[in-house]
Amino acid sequence: MRIRVAAVGDVHLGEDLRGRYRRRLDGIEERADVLLIAGDLTRHGTPEEGRVVADEFRDLPIPVVTVLGNHDYQSDAEDEIVALLRDAGIRVLQDDSTVIQCGDLRLGVVGGKGFGGGFAGKCASEFGEPQMKAFVRHTREISELWHKALKGLNTEHRVVLSHYSPVKDTLAGEPLEIYPFLGSYLLAEAVDAEGADLFIHGHAHSGVEKGLTPGGVRVRNVALPVLRRAYAVYSLSGEETES
């Protein structure tokens, strides 16, 4: 018994790419039970681009779950984009969870866009100017919400879906100087506290696909320029992960 999770991120759709991604999804139901999209759905974050995204991913034969990315906030239209996606039947996580029934198994997906701050020992702190405190507080509050959402899930399998990265492993190839803008260890800490089968993220176009949290949760960077394929498929099986 297994659950097959398809995942991709950073598709950056717009009118100039309308229809191109959809045809890559033909037959996805033969390969996967659910599709997770790791944010940066658009390039400018406009409602017009949101409509393209909704049209590309609507009415697929498998459930689709997404989070937003930083590009999807660029035009201050994130709420409208979320509404467009939900109208198209796409589940949008905003620091909460959803449960998908896959045969006899239930898959819990927790997540949201995440945020940055850096990695243990080399990160920003909630200290000093209000702007710096707000930056780090945003990530801390997100990680607390994810921790709570994971704790509340009683499913056979659990996956975390984010735009930002929880670890440095999957950033290899990105300039070291921008790591604090690519993710935060606080995201990993929240997930390691409760356990999960898999952590999916995007955002790091020059990174690598595979990594691991300090607690041993597999991390996969599914940004399209990293995957260079329409989507990756991860098969979850084995023992239950409930803690």
Partner: peptide
Amino acid sequence: VVEVREPGEEEAL
């Protein structure tokens, strides 16, 4: 331009 191939083999975790 990013070249996007067909989805490959699944990875068992």
